[in-house]
Computed example of a mutant assay.
Amino acid sequence: MKVAVMGAGAVGCFYGGMLARAGHDVVLIGRPQHVDAIAREGLRLEAQQFDERIGAPHLTAGTEASAISGAQLVLFCVKSTDTESAGASIKPFLGADTLVLTLQNGVDNADRLRGVIANDVAAAVVYVATEMAGPGHVRHHGRGELVIEPSRSSESVAHALIAAGVPTEISPNVRGALWAKLIVNCAYNALSAITQLPYGRLVQGAGVNAVMQDVFDECVAVAQADGVTLPPEIHGAIERIAQTMPGQYSSTAQDVARGKRSEIDHLNGYVVQRGAALGVKTPANRLLQTLVRLVEDKAHGAI
Rank of each mutant, 00 (worst) to 15 (best):
V125C: 14
H141T: 02
D82W: 07
V228K: 06
Y249M: 15
I90E: 00
L230T: 03
V116K: 06
C77P: 00
G70K: 00
A276S: 10
G134Y: 05
G259A: 04
A299H: 13
N189K: 02
G134D: 03
G236T: 01
R31W: 12
V256P: 09
G42S: 09
G259R: 03
I264D: 04
S262R: 03
T63V: 14
A210W: 04
H235N: 08
Y127F: 15
I117L: 08
V215E: 02
A118C: 05
C219E: 00
A67I: 06
A163V: 02
Q254E: 08
L287I: 09
I264G: 04
N268T: 12
I54L: 15
T244G: 06
G205E: 03
V203N: 03
R274W: 05
R21K: 14
A10R: 04
A20M: 10
K260G: 03
P32Y: 05
G7I: 00
K79T: 00
L94K: 02
D36N: 06
A242H: 04
P57W: 11
H235F: 06
S262C: 08
R114Y: 11
G95L: 07
G17V: 11
N173M: 04
E145K: 12
L94E: 05
I264T: 10
I117F: 10
E233S: 11
A129V: 07
K79L: 00
H159Q: 11
I38Q: 08
T130Q: 13
S151G: 12
Y270I: 05
A67S: 13
T282E: 00
V126W: 01
H137P: 07
P150Q: 08
Q273A: 15
A20S: 11
F14Y: 15
T252L: 12
V184S: 01
L59A: 07
M1R: 10
D108A: 13
E64F: 04
T83D: 11
A206M: 08
V138P: 00
R261H: 14
A133E: 15
P92G: 04
D226P: 01
Q204L: 14
L197G: 02
L28Y: 12
G269I: 10
R201I: 03
A299V: 05
S192N: 06
A133R: 10
C219I: 00
R175L: 12
D214T: 13
A118V: 10
R40V: 13
H24E: 14
T130S: 14
V26G: 11
P231S: 11
L294A: 14
E239D: 14
T81W: 11
L278Y: 01
H159C: 07
Q48G: 02
S66I: 07
A47S: 14
Q243W: 05
T83V: 13
F93V: 05
S262Y: 11
A190T: 07
R21H: 11
A37L: 09
N173C: 07
A276D: 15
A242L: 03
R114M: 13
E41M: 03
E233G: 05
I162P: 02
G23P: 09
H140T: 01
A237M: 15
R293Q: 15
D214A: 14
E169Q: 09
L19W: 09
S192M: 07
V228H: 08
Q224H: 12
M132T: 15
K298V: 13
P92C: 06
A206R: 13
L101D: 01
G279Q: 08
S85W: 05
P32W: 04
E155A: 14
T63C: 02
L287R: 04
E155T: 08
I234M: 07
A302Y: 12
A276W: 04
S154Y: 05
